[in-house]
Each structure stands twice: as structure tokens, then as C-alpha cells.
């Protein structure tokens, strides 16, 4: 069973179409990236999945059917704009939120102790939330998202306000959740985090899904005929199949003539006895793909 199936959802506010015919599926045991620039429609899509909004058209199947009150206990949500009771002691706040997810007080307390230890928040458990640093509040919010051990985890910008040590800890936790078979949707602008963590992704812009697939598939869609090399001797003036050469930091980029393959260029370089230390097909980074999709606006779904 696929935990989340989003099927052609559409939602408008007044004359603005926030989400337009978006479809995707999230599998158990994967981290799914929901990407897009600010105002692209990501938050609206998440709110439709969470049944905060009803779609104008289309449907969402979550954990095998429409959203129900019982299913809310199986979903963990970390919204982009964090929300905790500022005047409340940390432990009381988290026990209350865990209680709303169906955990008993005793179970909430027991799990909370474990999570507070893991997130290094035990010494702060009786402090008021407002007395905690931004990073600590972020970790507390993550505890609220995970404490009831949900089957579906939806997290919006999980790494904001975290230092490198805590960022790594959260990455480890997300990887653990994936390993346990949970479906994780992660919204973020940090493309290197997506490249590191996500198995598949959808990129939304102006409410429409522009890219959808595995990381490799998406990269393949935007792959070029370019080669990155490092040579210890100067390159020949003319290389068969190479249109022109660009110097990029430590690498040299060879832009190929259409119809020529990277393999034929490699053969040419070897034949000409060019000493090569590094040879790589130039695959575009997710950052580059993101910028190209958003600026060019070409759908590849």
C-alpha cells in the first residue's frame, strides 16, 4: 500500500490557483522531496494532504483511504512556521501535544524522557518554551512530530535554525524513520539536503508539478553532453567531437558537438596521449535544475 496518493488536486483562492492538477505518490520507506520556490503551492498541497483544506478537484488517499480522525494519530507534521505554547514548560507542552495524538499520559512521559535525552534537551525540560533558543525549540518541535511514532511524517524545512551537529542528528533520525518503513515528505529549499536524503521528489512551481521522479531520473532529464576533466598536461588545440572548452575552477569542461558521445571523446584523448587524472560526465546539480525549471518554466512530468 502506498501511504500517500495525491491525484490531480486543484485548489484556488479567489482568482489565484494555488495548486493546479498536481499528482504524486509517496511510498513507505522513502524520503520524498516536495520542492519549489516560495509561494509555489507547497504549503497548500501539504494542507490538502493533511485535510486542513478540501481540494476543489482531485483527491488524496492517505494510509489507504480518505483522512479520518483515527488516521490523524498516525501522522506527524512539522509546519514551516513553528508552533509551541511559549508560556508553557517544555515537558508539559510536549505531553499535551502527544496526548492529542492519542498517547496516554504515562506513555507520553516515558517516550518524552527518551526523546529529550536524544535531543540533549533533558536539562531544559521544565523551562518555559520561550526560554529556549531557536535551535532548541526546533528540536522540541521535531519531538512533537515524532513522539507518537507516526507512519506518515510531513516536515517543512526541518533543518532551519539547526547547527551542523544537530542537522546531522536530524538527518540520522530521518534515515532511521525511512529504514523503519515510514513515508517521509520533506519540504526544503536546501538542495544539497535533498540530494543527500531524498529518494524521489516533485518540484512545484506556480501550483504545477514541473518535475517528478527519482533523483537520478530528474538529473537524467537535465543531463547535458558535457564532460569534466583534469589533465596534467595542456590539452590539444583541437579534439574531435568537442565544440569548445571552458575552465571551471579546478576542472576543464568540454562541451561536445551533438552526435558525439563522451566515450568517443575519451578515446580521442587517450589516443592523443593526454595524461588524465579525472574524467566525469557533467551531471547538473539539483540547484542548477531547480533554477532552470523555475526560470524556464518547462514541465517534465
Amino acid at each position: 500500500m502506498q501511504p500517500i496518493i495525491v491525484d490531480k488536486i486543484q485548489k484556488s483562492f479567489g482568482n489565484t490557483r494555488a495548486v493546479d492538477d498536481v499528482s504524486f505518490v509517496v511510498n513507505g520507506g522513502e524520503i520524498f522531496g516536495l520542492l519549489g520556490p516560495n509561494g509555489a503551492g507547497k504549503t497548500t498541497a501539504i494542507r490538502i494532504i493533511l485535510d486542513i483544506f478540501k481540494p476543489d478537484k482531485g483527491s488524496v488517499t492517505i494510509l489507504g483511504g480518505p483522512m479520518s480522525e483515527a488516521k490523524k494519530n498516525r501522522i506527524g507534521y512539522l509546519p514551516e512556521e513553528r508552533g509551541l505554547y511559549q508560556e508553557m514548560p517544555l515537558d508539559r507542552c510536549l505531553i499535551y501535544l502527544a496526548g492529542l495524538k492519542g498517547l496516554s499520559i504515562a506513555e507520553s512521559k516515558s517516550r518524552l524522557t527518551r526523546y529529550l535525552d536524544r535531543f540533549d534537551l533533558s536539562p531544559h525540560r521544565t523551562k518555559k518554551v520561550k526560554e529556549l533558543s531557536k535551535g532548541m525549540q526546533q528540536k522540541a518541535q521535531l519531538i512533537a512530530t515524532l513522539i507518537h511514532e507516526p507512519d506518515v511524517i510531513i516536515i517543512d524545512e526541518p533543518f532551519s535554525a539547526l547547527d551542523p551537529v544537530n542537522t546531522q542528528m536530524v538527518k540520522d533520525i530521518l534515515a532511521e524513520e525511512r529504514h523503519k518503513g515510514k513515508a517521509v515528505i520533506m519540504c526544503t529549499h536546501q538542495m544539497h539536503q535533498v540530494e543527500e536524503l531524498c529518494d524521489r521528489l516533485v518540484l512545484i512551481d506556480h501550483g504545477r508539478a514541473m518535475l517528478y521522479g527519482t533523483l537520478a531520473e530528474v538529473r537524467q532529464m537535465y543531463a547535458t553532453q558535457d564532460i569534466l576533466i583534469n589533465a596534467t598536461a595542456p590539452l590539444p588545440q583541437k579534439i574531435k567531437g568537442v565544440d569548445h572548452v571552458e575552465e571551471i575552477n579546478t576542472h576543464t569542461k568540454l562541451v561536445l558537438i551533438p552526435g558525439f558521445s563522451a566515450q568517443s571523446v575519451l578515446n580521442e584523448l587517450v589516443n592523443k596521449r593526454v595524461p588524465i587524472e579525472h574524467f566525469e560526465i557533467a551531471v547538473p546539480s539539483l540547484d542548477e535544475i531547480f533554477i532552470r525549471v523555475v526560470t524556464e518554466g518547462v514541465e517534465k512530468v
Binding site: 480522525e69 507534521y77 492529542l100
Partner: peptide, 19 residues
Amino acid sequence: EEKENRTIEIIVTSVSPNQ
């Protein structure tokens, strides 16, 4: 306050509006 500090978004994904 719950709207201002955004706690409400967490609450509504846990309980129904009626509850």
C-alpha cells in the same frame, strides 16, 4: 495566541474542529 504562535496548525492535524 494559538493562531499567532502557529500552534493551531499542529492542533488541527491532531483533533477535529468540533473536538
